[in-house]
Each structure stands twice: as C-alpha cells, then as structure tokens.
C-alpha cells in the first residue's frame, strides 16, 4: 500500500521537498514573518506589547533622517560596488586570461583569500591605527614631505568607511567573475581576433557580455552586504555617519524592538527591489 502511495509521483515529490521546505519555513519564513508582525507592535521603555498600529512606520517615514540615512546607504552601496567591480574584474581578468598555468592560477587565487583567514572585524579595525591622525599613513606622508599637516579625512570619514568596504568585499566580486571567465570558450577569443577585433573590442564585445552573470552574482553579494552592514560604518566613521543598519542597531540598543523591526522591514523590501531590478538585466540561472 505504502509502495503504491509512493509510486504516486506527486506524493513522492512532496515528500522529497518536505525537509527543505521545513527548514526554510522554520529558519527563513517564520523569523521574517515575526519581524513583520513585531513591526506593528508598540513599545514602552522596557517592554513591547502586541498591537496593530502604524506608529513605527509613521515615525520612520515622517522623519527626514530616515531619507538621509537611506540615501547614505545607497551611496555607500553604489560607490563600493563601482570600486569592487573595477578591482574585482581586473583581478579576475588577470587570473583567467594572463596567468596560463592552472597551478599558478590556483596559487594566486588562494593568495587573494589570505586576508579572509581572519575575522572581518579584525581586518576592519586594523585600519584604524594605520589611518589615524598620528597613524602610519600620516607619519609616512609627512616624513616624505608630501603633506605638512596630518590628513584628518583618512579616518572617521566616508573615505574610511568605503575603504573598509572595498577591502572587505572585493573578493566577493573576484570569485564569481573569475568563475565565469574560466568557463568562456577560448576559441571565441581566437575567433574575435581572427575577425580583426582589437584587444579592447574583444573585451567589450566578447568577454564582458559573457561575464555578465558572474558580475551580477558579485553585485548581489556586495550590494546586500553593504546595505545590511552596520558595524563597519560604526567603527570606521567613529559613529559619525549612519546607514540603515546603524539605525536598526541603535533602536535595538535602546530596547525599541518594534521600531527596529519596522526599519528592518523597509530595508528588506528595498534590498529585494534592488535585486529584482538587477535580475531583470541578466539571467543568472545560466550561471548556476
């Protein structure tokens, strides 16, 4: 009987899908649903109480600070994306097309990952003594006679934040782009050459279009990581700048969970919209 039931394709399919569905339900859908629910709750100074009110959203959308902070978040995401893409693409291109031996490719690729053997907080904080007013960078520049006064904007500034982001997340660009580039059929490059294309034309008309899925995957990584970050912004700007993540973490520290949940919901929607737009451009399924 049981065998007969399993013979039914539909039942078997459901059963096979069930474990994954259960995991996703318990660890993805349920927490997000909870955040959405709590975002409508109310809060006192030391507790939260169930309610259905729009106070949190009202305050969020009514405050000019929210818009400024969302704008700052997009700014960080955009600049970091542009820089990581440029650097990441260049590194991947070098690895994929200039380094001929596979052993060398693997060795150099592993070299790129070395900084990732330590925690990202440590990688970030180690910039602080380097960039500080009396830090190594300023002292070196002064001893070379390039500058007379220490540069103040090196640390606790947008510059420092973006520098840390680029340092932390470039590898997330390199890996998928390198991966797609390795799959490009080399005969296509030869064909382009035979057809009279210059190196630059080959890059623009052959390599970049074929690398798009990798670029897109890297983009999604970098954009979501930067938009969801709060600790990098806090440390590298010395709490002087804010992004949405910091807004949420401040709320949590002040026990304003419903308000934090509302901000999180808005951030989640924003990131989903951004990704939806990105996916319009490229079919990344081809990559997977």
């Amino acid at each position: 009987m049981a065998i007969r039931a399993f013979a039914n394709r539909h039942v078997a399919g459901w059963v096979q899908a069930a474990p994954l569905a259960a995991v996703l339900l318990g660890f993805l859908i349920a927490p997000i649903a909870m955040i959405v629910v709590v975002s409508f709750w109310g809060a006192t100074e030391f507790s939260i109480y169930p309610a259905f009110q729009f106070d949190n959203y009202e305050f969020l959308f009514g405050s000019p600070v929210t818009y400024r902070v969302f704008l700052a978040t997009f700014k960080y995401a955009l600049i970091t994306w542009a820089l990581t893409l440029t650097i990441g693409f260049t590194v991947a291109y070098f690895l994929a097309f200039h380094v001929r031996s596979l052993t060398m490719q693997v060795a150099l690729f592993l070299l790129c990952t070395i900084p990732f053997w330590t925690s990202n907080i440590i990688r970030m904080i180690s910039w602080i003594p380097f960039l500080g007013r009396n830090g190594i960078a300023n002292q070196t520049l002064i001893s070379w006679g390039v500058i007379d006064e220490p540069l103040e904007w090196l640390l606790y500034s947008d510059f420092a934040v973006i520098l840390a982001f680029v340092h932390l997340y470039t590898l997330f660009m390199v890996v998928p782009i390198f991966n797609t580039m390795m799959r490009i059929d080399r005969s296509l490059l030869e064909a382009a050459r035979d057809a009279g294309a210059s190196g630059f034309q080959t890059l623009v008309h052959v390599v970049i279009p074929l690398t798009k899925p990798g670029i897109m995957i890297g983009t999604i990584f970098v954009v979501t990581l930067v938009m969801g970050d709060f600790i990098t912004v806090r440390f590298m700007s010395g709490s002087q700048r804010a992004n949405v993540g910091r807004l949420i973490s401040n709320d949590i520290a002040l026990l304003q969970y419903p308000s934090a949940a509302a901000t999180a919901v808005v951030l989640l929607c924003t990131v989903l919209i951004v990704i939806a737009i990105l996916l319009r451009f490229v079919n990344i399924r081809r990559e997977l």
Binding site: S63, V65, A242, R246, N250, D251, Q256
Partner: peptide, 12 residues
C-alpha cells in the same frame, strides 16, 4: 522615548 528618538536622529 522622545529623547531616545531624537538621539538616534542626532547620531544619524
């Protein structure tokens, strides 16, 4: 609570 929200705005 009002002060806390204003503080958050100040930081941001």
């Amino acid at each position: 609570q009002y002060m806390v929200r204003k503080w958050n705005e100040f930081i941001a």
